[in-house]
Simulated scan of single mutants.
Amino acid sequence: MSVSDGVTRNGLWAVDSDYSWEFSLDQGVTWTIGSGKSFEVKGDGPKMIWVRARDDAGNKSEIVVVTCVLDTMAPAPVAVSSSVDGFTRSLQVTGLEANAKWEYSLDNQISWHAGSGSALGTLGNGLSMVWIRQVDLAGNASASQVFDLQAAGSSMSHEASTNPLQPSKMAEGLLTMLIHGVVVRGDADYVRWDIPKNHRVKSVRLVRYVSEDAIAFYAIQSSNVFDAGVDVSRMLVYGHMGPADLNRNVLANISPEKLGEGPMTIWFQQTGTLPTEYAIEIILQAVN
Rank of each mutant, 00 (worst) to 15 (best):
V201A: 10
N163S: 10
D71K: 14
V232N: 04
H199R: 12
V78A: 01
A143W: 00
I215A: 11
R133W: 05
S24P: 11
E62C: 02
V237C: 09
T276N: 09
S118A: 07
F23R: 10
V232H: 04
L174R: 07
I195L: 06
L12Q: 15
W13L: 14
P196Y: 02
A79G: 11
V230I: 11
S161I: 07
L175F: 06
G95L: 08
M48L: 07
V80M: 04
V232P: 02
T273P: 03
K42F: 01
V237P: 12
R54P: 03
V51W: 01
Y190G: 03
W13K: 12
S155I: 10
A286V: 14
T67D: 06
S223K: 09
L236Q: 13
L149Y: 10
T162F: 01
P256D: 06
L236M: 14
R52Q: 08
G139E: 03
P243S: 09
N108G: 00
A114R: 15
F226G: 05
V183Q: 12
W131N: 15
P243W: 05
Y238P: 02
T32K: 12
E40L: 14
A228Y: 03
P75G: 05
V135C: 09
V29E: 14
L149V: 11
E103H: 14
G117Y: 13
K169G: 00
N247C: 02
V191H: 02
S203Y: 01
D187Y: 08
P167T: 09
W21Y: 08
A216S: 15
M1V: 15
P167E: 04
N288V: 11
F87H: 15
V69Q: 02
Q166V: 13
S4R: 12
V146S: 15
D189S: 04
A57I: 06
I195P: 03
D44K: 11
Y190L: 01
A151K: 14
W31P: 07
M177V: 05
A160K: 03
A279W: 03
A286E: 15
S223C: 03
D189L: 00
Y104I: 02
S116N: 08
D245M: 01
S168G: 07
